[in-house]
Design a protein around this nucleic acid. Structure first.
Length: 802
RNA sequence: GCCGGCGUGGCGGAAUGGCAGACGCAUCAGACUCAAAAUCUGACGAGGGAAACCUCGUAUGGGUUCAAGUCCCAUCGCCGGCACCA
């Protein structure tokens, strides 16, 4: 045998050779079939690579390497999502410019990724903080602005008390900042917003044409939260005014016994003079305003509210006069900020009605006494107490009432979404400057495209300010400018973009990363899009994934990109937990550093282990014993060198197994079943040891199959074996379906579904012969009258006897 | 509360409705060794039996089927997401 297995030496050697030979560069020959594999580019944090990173990277590296060997022109790129708060915070604390911190972190990450032997096309590396890159992030923003999809709005935003920055709804988790865990309060600020809501329907429709794992689709659908209903206008008594509500159940209109408006509803201020209990109302509003969103939902169960004295609404279908209340269980941000309450059939309305002694009228039959509990199981049922709707099924009643409302001009069909617009401003330094100036005369004016990239100014201090202004605001030289429109005095926008900006389109840039004229050439986009397979974390389902689909769809509508959807297929990996089954963290002391594993066992072992650890989509606990097992497996492959015979063909006894293994591994690599693919290869080498030899032809196939998982070792063995050229240039092996079945198979023989024994049969044996042979083998075990005889070819014989 | 997913040996986990536990880890026994490590060979769901074998077994209770870990209904438990969204 050629020396010991020394991963350290081998791995460095091949990494250098691959670099030198540009082994994995995507070709610009657009006549070849393409394959675009993508993993989420990392945020280069100061901690360096986490042991969780290699899981998705290795998975798609396997797919990329396999596809290359199958003749595809593969694009498997990598880059850096490098803007962001942690870098800025680190910079503040250590008085180092974030740019320097970023450079350092990127260098470290790159080295670590390199040590794992990924087949990334490093010529296409991108970095969101590079002006050449954010030029186009800003360019897209200008497009959005010009299309009316970016607007500035005074609004209560989620304000992180620690980061001192506004957050998108998606970034607030259980009332605390998703990133730092600090309290989030409401603060009114003028913010840049993106109208993602305008794309709600398109984002929903787009899901129909893509191949995403089910739970991602479901999460996105829930997040967009489409509901069908109607808007209905209630006239206010003695006033020339209507109060409009949104309801998904217009059919229950006869059961509406009161209305509720949100404390922020404009109607309240408008009729201040006529409200008889203004002091109570004002006090209630103030109390509601003080609560954070979190508190408001935490205290959910106990309903509070105050009636609007002097205001009475009229139910448009029966003329009944009903009171109007204010309560914070009605949200200004959804629907119209006002509801009609149908306490008989809605839990919340029922609670409220009980507490304030409001009437409850049953309008859908079938439940218990609605005075005792709300009857909410009313997706079907017959209407009662509803005049012209009486006796109708819910579905019919909905149709009829909407017709009625539309005819009378008091209501109409309406679709609503839970999705809110995207808060796009950050009062921070380390982000893309927003390319807008504010002119005293012309308002918000976009800067000219020729001015891009609008460079981030160098500042002395990056400290966030307590008043919520960006640190850039103090840079008067940079801020003061002239209006591109009228030439008058103007000030630059000092807020920056959120981290999600740069990551919303990065996959486009990879197709043509050095282009100075456009974000990428039309040809490159046309050839490479859509991304064939995109893998990333579940935590990005409603953030990054939705945002990038939004931008992409917008760019499609603008004619910039050729596909409606950016990603054809989306999968998600599970987390890697500590040995104790808990999430890895410094405080728990269960962190595994990938560098240590590479040093001790080698990159190939780490790669193999992370793929073998368990089902790819599920989280899995780290096990050092398991790592050793994978190293042992690679050692056993290495030592097969001792058993090699000169034969170029597959041996008779191994032929079937070879074909089976090629089939299994090829299929499993495409179906996220890396663990069973590796198990199949382990089983194959166990068989080689059993028969005591391996032919040159068999070994060659094994090396190719294993190459995507353990690229360094297999490449080294390929060279030792002198198979010619490089392994990465080899062709993926074919299998013959017919040869995946043994000539002689062992099948189970059952009586009434219970296995009694097994017999060997010829694979092509006829049913009658198999059954005859089975009966013979059973002998006197078989008693009673035979009712039925079942033969599943190559699997089982079942004889049903009574 | 709603939505999604999952419950299989000591552990990680395999099983297009067709012999449950592949593959790996741990453990035990044996070989090699002065010895240990490494390596190799074998055993390894539970109960019974000297053995051939037999019985039971995939969270629980029912059902469909010649045949159920897999499909259906109900229950329990765990994980993830959303949540006063009218």
């Amino acid at each position: 045998m050629e020396k010991m297995y020394q991963p350290k030496k081998i791995e460095r050697k091949w990494q250098e050779i691959w670099d030198k030979e540009k082994a994995f560069a995507a070709s610009e020959d657009y006549s070849k079939p393409k394959y675009y594999a993508l993993v989420e580019f990392p945020y280069p944090s100061g901690q360096g690579l986490h042991v969780g990173h290699p899981r998705p990277y290795t998975a798609l590296d396997i797919v990329a390497r396999k596809r290359r060997m199958q003749g595809y022109n593969v694009l498997y790129p990598m880059g850096w999502d490098a803007f962001g708060l942690p870098t800025e915070n680190y910079a503040i604390k250590n008085k180092i410019h974030p740019k320097i911190v970023t450079e350092r972190n990127v260098a470290r990450f790159k080295e670590q990724l390199h040590s794992l032997g990924y087949s990334f096309d490093w010529d296409r590396e991108i970095n969101t903080t590079d002006p050449e890159y954010y030029h186009w992030t800003q360019w897209i923003f200008l497009k959005l602005f010009k299309a009316g999809l970016a607007y500035k709005k005074e609004m209560p935003i989620n304000w992180c008390t620690s980061c001192k920055v506004g957050l998108a709804n998606e970034e607030v988790v259980n009332g605390v900042c998703e990133r730092c865990g600090s309290e989030v309060v409401r603060k009114v600020k003028s913010q840049w917003m993106l109208k993602i809501t305008e794309y709600a329907e398109k984002l929903l429709e787009g899901l129909e044409e893509v191949d995403y794992i089910e739970k991602v689709k479901v999460s996105q659908k829930n997040w967009i939260g489409r509901s069908e209903g109607a808007e209905v206008s209630f006239k206010l008594k003695d006033k020339d005014e209507t109060l409009t509500v949104y309801t998904t159940r217009p059919d229950t209109l006869f059961g509406a016994t009161y209305m509720v408006v949100s404390p922020e509803h404009p109607l309240i201020d408008k009729y201040k003079a006529e409200i008889t209990n203004w002091e109570d109302i004002a006090a209630y509003r103030e109390m509601a305003a003080r609560k954070s969103d979190f508190e408001r939902t935490e205290l959910a169960k106990d309903k509070t509210g105050v009636v609007l004295g002097g205001i009475t609404a009229v139910n448009p279908v029966n003329g009944r006069e009903i009171p109007v209340w204010i309560s914070d269980y009605v949200l200004m941000s959804y629907g119209t900020g006002a509801i009609m309450a149908v306490p008989a059939h809605d839990e919340r309305d029922w609670d409220f009605a009980k507490k304030f002694n409001l009437p409850i009228i049953e309008v859908v039959a079938g439940g218990e006494n609605v005075q005792e509990a709300a009857f909410t199981d009313v997706a079907t049922g017959k209407l009662v107490n509803s005049e012209f709707l009486n006796g109708l099924e819910v579905k019919e009643a909905k149709k009829k009432i909407i017709e009625f409302l539309e005819e009378k001009g008091i209501g109409h069909k309406k679709v609503n979404y839970k999705l809110r617009d995207w808060v796009f401003s950050r009062q921070r330094y380390w982000g893309e400057p927003i390319p807008i100036v504010k002119c005293e005369k012309c308002g918000y004016v976009p800067i000219d495209e020729s001015e891009l990239p609008l460079m981030l100014p160098e500042v002395e201090s990056y400290m966030p300010t307590d008043d919520g202004e960006s640190p850039i605001a103090a840079m008067t030289d940079w801020v003061n400018t002239v209006c591109p429109c009228c030439g008058g005095k103007a000030a630059r926008e000092t807020d920056t973009m959120p981290q999600w900006a740069g990551s919303s389109w990065y996959f486009l840039r990879y197709t043509d990363p050095k282009n100075k004229e456009a974000l990428a050439s039309k040809e490159a986009l046309k050839y490479w899009l859509p991304v064939d397979w995109y893998n990333g974390g579940m935590e990005h389902t409603t953030l990054h994934l939705l945002y990038s689909r939004f931008w992409h769809r917008f760019l499609y509508d603008e004619g910039v990109v050729p596909t409606k959807e950016p990603y054809k297929k989306r999968t998600s990996h599970g987390m890697i937990l500590g040995e104790n089954g808990e999430k890895m963290s410094k405080s728990r002391g269960n962190v595994v550093n990938p560098d240590d594993i590479v040093n001790e066992y080698g990159a190939d072992t780490l790669r193999t282990y992370e793929m073998f650890i368990g089902a790819f989509e599920l989280s899995a606990a780290w096990s050092n014993e398991g790592v050793r097992g994978c190293r042992r497996f690679l050692e056993r492959v290495w030592k097969l060198q001792d058993l090699i015979t000169d034969d170029d063909e597959y041996s008779k006894e191994m032929e079937t197994k070879m074909h089976q293994t090629i089939k299994k591994v090829s299929g499993d690599f495409e179906n996220l079943k890396f663990n069973t693919a590796i198990a199949a290869m382990m089983s194959l080498i166990n068989d080689f040891y059993k028969v005591g030899k391996v032919t040159k032809g068999e070994f060659k196939t094994l090396l190719i199959l294993l190459n995507p998982v353990a690229p360094h070792m297999t490449e080294e063995l390929w060279e030792i074996m002198n198979y010619g050229k490089r392994l990465y240039e080899a062709s993926w092996p074919e299998y013959d379906e017919a040869k995946t079945v043994e000539a002689t198979v062992e099948i189970a023989v059952q009586i009434n579904g219970k296995t009694k024994l097994t017999i060997f049969i010829d694979k092509d044996m006829e049913k009658e012969d198999v059954i005859a042979k089975a009966k013979e083998a059973l002998g006197d075990k078989l008693t009673g009258n035979i009712v039925k005889e079942i033969y599943v070819p190559g699997r089982i014989v079942n004889i049903v006897a009574k």
